[in-house]
Amino acid sequence: MGHICVIGGTRFFGRTLVKRLLGEGHKVTVLTRGRSGDDFGHTVSRLSADANDVDALSEAVAGHEFDAVVHQMCYSPVAALAAAKAFQGRIGRLVMTSTIEVYTTVPGVRPFAAAAELDPADHGYDVSLPWLDPDFSDAHYGEGKRQAESALTDAAQFPVAFARAGHVLAEGEFTGRLAFHVDRVLAGARIVTHRVPGRSSFVHADEIAGYLAWLSGSSVTGPVNASSPDGMAVRDLCAVIEAATGRTAVIEELDDPVGDSDLSPFSYPKDFGMVVEHEFSPVGAWLPEVVRREISGR
């Protein structure tokens, strides 16, 4: 078994990843800013640093060696370059948790894109942009991830894999995107979508955590798409909630819904998904239980 460092493993599927690695017999070190606690007890080692600060990160990992790093907090080329320098000579490989959002606004990418259609080596990066400003980074989330992939591809002198995760769903997920739909169906409140909203790609939190654990011990490099193989539109998600609640979703399709406070976070004007090469479970195999657990938590 290996020694795996997880950067940012204290919430959502990061916690699931840490527990998965521990269950597989790995030694795990969790590196965070130290601002929030965890429930891992004495089962993990802990380091504290801001992953965007190359000096602090280098100081934190000095004297440590890892078989792999799973980077959950690499949102920009600033963090990517910090990792490339701090971990040089200290790790066997790095797995960056990336996102489906890297495919937004990229010319020539198909509605359901293959990983090879977006080569990190071709994109480039700009560290002069205000990536540490939360307002800027939130508004440029997909671009930040694209540039992070490019920066690691350019600067890392160790093998790197990029797991481009679909929209991650589980009960109680911290973004509130599943709760957005459940709450509105239960309340009979409107859910706004684009006219004939497109399908997108989704993945269960447990499955993406398991895949990241597998990647940390594999020889895979470069970008890989990580999601269920079948796409899902907002109406499909609402149909599962309707079946679990016995309520009817109030869906309102608009030609130009941008800016509407009731716009579904999963509504797209056309298909926006990924072709997946790794074997993941279809959405229908896990979504109904996720929805039932989300409802039972009310």
Rank of each mutant, 00 (worst) to 15 (best):
H204K: 06
C5Q: 04
L47Y: 01
S296C: 11
V102E: 12
F66Y: 12
H123Q: 07
L22Q: 04
F174S: 15
T97M: 14
F266G: 03
L129C: 06
T10D: 05
T32L: 07
P107T: 10
I295R: 08
G259H: 11
R298Q: 12
A49Y: 01
R15M: 12
A249E: 08
V224K: 12
H123K: 06
G297Y: 04
A239C: 08
I241Y: 15
V182H: 05
P159Q: 12
T221L: 02
D138L: 15
L254W: 05
A114W: 09
D135I: 10
A115T: 12
R146K: 13
E252T: 15
M274L: 14
V6P: 00
S216M: 01
I208L: 05
H26I: 02
R298M: 10
P77E: 08
A62D: 07
F40A: 07
V276T: 13
G210S: 03
G172C: 02
G124C: 09
D119G: 07
A114L: 06
P229H: 11
P282N: 00
F158I: 00
Q72P: 02
A56P: 00
V127W: 07
S281Q: 14
P120S: 05
D271G: 07
Q147M: 15
D206G: 14
L21D: 12
V18R: 08
A68G: 01
G92C: 03
D122R: 15
H167R: 13
C5E: 00
G259T: 12
Q72I: 02
F66G: 00
H3D: 10
V182S: 05
F280L: 14
L237V: 14
T245I: 09
V291D: 14
T43G: 06
A189Y: 04
T105K: 13
P269Q: 11
N225T: 03
W131A: 09
L254G: 02
P288T: 05
D256P: 08
A49W: 01
G124T: 05
P77Q: 10
F40Y: 06
G23P: 05
F112Q: 08
V276L: 07
R298E: 12
L129W: 04
A163F: 00
L31Y: 02
A205E: 11
P269K: 13
H64V: 00
V18N: 07
P265A: 14
G108L: 10
A56V: 00
V78W: 03
E277L: 07
H26W: 07
C74L: 11
F272L: 11
G142D: 06
E242I: 11
S128A: 13
R35T: 14
R93S: 05
A165P: 06
T99L: 03
E253Y: 12
A62S: 13
V127M: 12
H3W: 07
S128F: 07
V224W: 14
L81C: 09
D67T: 01
S201H: 13
Q88L: 00
